[in-house]
Write a protein that binds this DNA or RNA. Structure first.
Length: 863
DNA sequence: GAGTTTGAAACT
DNA sequence: CAGTTTCAAACTC
């Protein structure tokens, strides 16, 4: 940069000698002659390298296009790049230290990629292997590549580099020092360089945008480590190539080089999406490359080569990213991920992870997922943005690629998506999510560990995990095509559209912005590459109506969602993400995949219009707020009651025969307690019921807090007698009453069933009862054990139901006092319920009376 | 595998 | 905007 072109012209011969400058013996008089070189020599050994950089920069200057193409790249940056190149070229030329190149490329972005092209030819040119030649020839990048990546100057660069290499070959030991210096510079400068490079690159093209996200995503995902992971890997390769291992690396790299070069160029040629006549092939190749990288690294034998190959392939990948844009970005993500993973776990990722096919499918998943996870969000968002932004052609290309990938290699998609999505971190989902995962995805592979899965989309699960998960989730269900579609399957989820021609949002593929593939079982599918025009038109049409139609449905809610203290306290709604539009569930209570929120594994939000939300990932905020408000009221009332009771020394043992209590109308007296306890709170009925139950749960808790002795009575939430509330109210109601634990615990459903009361309760509502059963089944043994003290309370007969103090009480008390929780072993005696005015108009009176009687009768049993 | 349920999307 | 219809996934048997 600093030195103008004239220096370059003169330097072309001298460049080769520049490296030797590091060594005391400068064989080329030319170098000595130049005052600049002299100055360089006077400088510290590191600076000579920089000088070489400068010289390389000259080389770069030879290629003005670099400057023009990436005008924003700082001179410094370019210098580093240039310096790297020559070094690399030295390595490659003499013995091809591809690792360095790979490292550099990895560490650095497009600029490096651009340079890669020249390098590859260089390596090829120097490599004696016939294979290399063949590969290079076959793989020779199409002219289009030049358009995208190659700077016009690159071609010029080659000869210079060649000269450099030749000279360097003679140099010998000097290379090591230069390499060291470079390595150091790379390490130190690498990140900065990346940043510098990334910015301009991103701005330069959408493709760059895509790539960055991936990179950033990786960084985010891996955090500092991951961020470093790439560096580590890169550095690792560098280290290998570095002076200590130079010889070894060089040899191996040299051996491997041809292959790598071939691969690269293949990638390179392949990478150009537009250019690529057959995207499928490209993808396959790309996959192969990735696979080879991963596998090679896995194999100790291949390791040395791997480094080089990986680097080269990585380069190739990056190129693709550049060229392909979206697809490339995805691929880059994959590559990054793989690298990271590899760095961490050499063995970890299955081949599938690397495969590009995930590109198409996981776009949405990524998009959706990314927002969720802070680290990866950038990628996802950008991807989404990019997708949205580029409706027309870019999107189309993506689709093509995706579609191709899907059709060609469905599993790959998944794996890839899987990885990416797993990056999403829903820490907030906490126990619920954890439970969910545990239950649904029993098989969590290492990758899972690395990437805790919160798959928002169906498409995200890795193939292996998918299989496992499906079996686990639906061991017996034979879902045909649907099965493939299922989220669990995760794999290339295919649609099963019959009438929509896959041109409506009904179609998962279309809705995800993907073309249908072989995995789809759709009829008269119009969502295929062949019908791109139609697809695009349809998309535009849909977008005209709803610009966000193809936007990710799951958005990071941290900023969007007002953080309710309630939520946080109750852990009812993980704040990590929310469904953009929210669900509208009426009957599923957001507990099934009918609910998009649940399906996406995110909590319901205020945007949801669901009834009786029981979303395990987070209840609707409204409910929580309602609950909170009502709970306060009830608390006050309860306190009053408690005081009153104490004043009157009322016994509070309660035994209830549900059969008796049960009103004709499903008033499921879940617990007599409830009815008794709700004093006049009945006002809230019907629709509020859902809120009521939540409230009641809180009330119960609050009651306990205020009066431990009053226990069950006060816990009782209001029973909603209205039919509307029946199904809605009861279950939550019961749940809440039964165990405040759920809320305390963070809302995992499992806790709900823990209370001894639950099993005995008969619910008229099937869904509730089912849910109840499920919950109960899920109840942890510990809780069951904990409940044992009250087991006696359980009534075997459906008609009789004895109410034991809600677990919540136990938990609260136990936790508050000793923290032992349920295990405290503290016995709770049900006290007869004081006669309160009937909570519910329906059967309250009965309940009360019966409750008293029963309680008095069964008081003995209760203990 | 067929049928039902469910809720989103599309339509009016 | 609300109500209805259409649709395909999810679910059940």
């Amino acid at each position: 940069m600093d030195s103008p072109e004239p220096s370059q012209i003169n330097n072309t011969p001298s460049l080769s000698t520049l490296n030797p400058t590091n060594t005391p013996s400068d064989e080329s008089p030319q170098v000595q002659e130049s005052p600049f070189l002299r100055f360089v020599n006077t400088l510290s050994p590191i600076q000579p390298v920089k000088a070489s950089h400068a010289t390389h920069g000259f080389l770069g200057l030879n290629s003005p296009p670099l400057v023009f193409k990436s005008p924003r790249i700082s001179d410094h940056h370019r210098e580093t790049q240039c310096s790297e190149r020559p070094d690399e070229t030295h390595l490659s030329g003499g013995e091809m230290c591809q690792d360095d190149t790979g490292d550099n490329c990895l560490g650095e972005t497009h600029g490096d990629l651009k340079k890669l092209n020249p390098q590859q030819p260089l390596s090829e040119g120097f490599t004696t292997d016939a294979q290399n030649d063949v590969n290079t020839q076959s793989c020779s990048p199409p002219p289009s590549v030049d358009e995208y990546l190659a700077d016009p100057g690159d071609d010029q660069m080659y000869p210079v580099n060649l000269e450099m290499e030749q000279s360097t070959d003679a140099v010998g030991s000097s290379l090591t020092e230069s390499e060291k210096v470079i390595l150091e510079s790379d390490r130190s400068d690498g990140p900065a360089n990346r940043a510098e490079e990334l910015l301009p690159l991103l701005e330069e093209s959408n493709t760059v945008h895509h790539e960055r996200p991936a990179y950033s995503e990786n960084l985010a995902i891996m955090e500092g480590e991951k961020d470093g992971a790439e560096w580590v890997s890169q550095e690792h390769t560098n280290l290998e190539s570095s002076p200590g291992a130079d010889i070894f690396d060089k040899q191996q790299s040299h051996d491997s080089l041809p292959q790598c070069a071939g691969n690269d160029q293949r990638h390179h040629s392949d990478c150009t999406p537009q250019l690529m006549p057959d995207p499928i092939q490209d993808i396959k190749e790309f996959e192969n490359c990735n696979e080879t990288v991963s596998t090679s690294q896995v194999n100790s034998e291949n390791i040395p080569q791997d480094g080089s190959e990986a680097s080269l392939k990585h380069h190739g990948i990056r190129r693709r990213c550049l060229q392909f844009g979206e697809a490339a970005s995805l691929g880059s993500n994959k590559s990054h991920v793989k690298l990271n993973v590899i760095s961490r776990n050499m063995n970890m990722l299955p081949v599938t992870a690397s495969k590009p096919p995930g590109i198409g499918l996981h776009l949405n998943s990524i998009i959706n997922a990314v927002p969720l996870s802070c680290p990866s969000s950038s990628t996802g968002v950008r991807l989404s943005d990019g997708l949205q932004g580029m409706h027309s052609k870019s999107s189309i290309t993506l689709h093509k690629v995706e579609n191709v990938t899907r059709s060609s290699i469905p599993t790959d998609m998944d794996s890839q998506s899987f990885i990416d999505t797993r990056n999403e971190s829903h820490e907030t989902d906490a126990s619920v999510a954890a439970d969910y995962f545990i239950s649904e995805s029993p098989i969590m592979t290492e990758s899972i560990d690395l990437y805790p899965e919160n798959t928002c989309d169906k498409r995200r699960v890795s193939p292996t995990s998918i299989e496992n998960t499906e079996e686990f989730n639906h061991p017996n269900t034979s879902k045909k095509k649907k099965k493939t579609n299922t989220d669990d399957a995760g794999g290339p989820k295919g649609c099963n559209c019959k009438k929509s021609k896959c041109l409506k949002l009904y179609c998962d593929c279309f809705g995800a912005g993907l073309f249908c593939g072989d995995g789809c079982a759709c009829d008269s599918c119009g969502n295929r590459v062949e019908f791109q025009e139609t697809v695009v038109e349809t998309k535009h049409h849909i977008e005209s109506r709803n610009p966000d139609a193809f936007a990710p449905k799951i958005v990071k809610c941290a900023a969007d969602v007002p953080q309710n203290n309630m939520e946080d306290v109750n852990m009812t709604t993980p704040a990590s993400a929310r469904h953009k539009r929210g669900c509208n569930c009426k009957r599923s209570m957001c507990t099934k995949k009918y609910c998009e929120c649940f399906q996406s594994k995110v909590g319901c939000s205020s945007g949801c219009r669901c009834d009786g939300c029981k979303n395990a990932f987070g209840k609707r905020e409204d409910f929580v707020a309602m609950e909170h408000a009502l709970s306060k009221e009830r608390e006050s009332n309860i306190v009053e009651e408690a005081l009153d009771d104490k004043l009157h020394n009322r016994p509070k043992m309660v035994t209830i025969r549900t059969g008796l209590l049960r009103p004709a109308n499903h008033l499921s007296p879940v617990t007599p307690l409830l009815q008794c306890s709700d004093q006049g709170k009945q006002g809230a009925k019907s629709r509020l019921a859902s809120a009521d139950w939540t409230k009641s749960s809180k009330n119960s808790r609050s009651n306990l807090a205020h009066t431990e002795t009053n226990d069950s009575q006060k816990n009782a939430p209001t029973c909603a007698s209205s039919k509307e509330s029946e199904w809605i109210d009861l279950p939550p109601y019961q749940l809440s009453n039964r165990c405040g634990i759920r809320q305390l615990s963070g809302g995992s459903l499992r806790w709900r069933g823990s209370s001894p009361i639950t099993p005995s309760i008969n619910l008229d509502d099937e869904p509730d009862s089912k849910l109840f059963d499920i919950l109960e089944d899920e109840t942890p043994d510990i809780l069951k054990e904990a409940s044992t003290p009250t087991k006696s309370v359980k009534a075997n007969s459906p008609l009789q139901k004895r109410v034991s103090p809600p677990q919540s009480h136990l938990l609260r008390i136990g936790s508050s006092s000793s923290g032992g929780g349920l295990k405290s072993g503290r016995k709770f005696i049900l006290q007869s319920v004081p006669s309160f005015p009937p909570l519910t108009p329906c059967a309250d009176s009965k309940v009360l009376s019966t409750g008293k009687e029963d309680s008095s009768n069964s008081a003995e049993k209760m203990t």
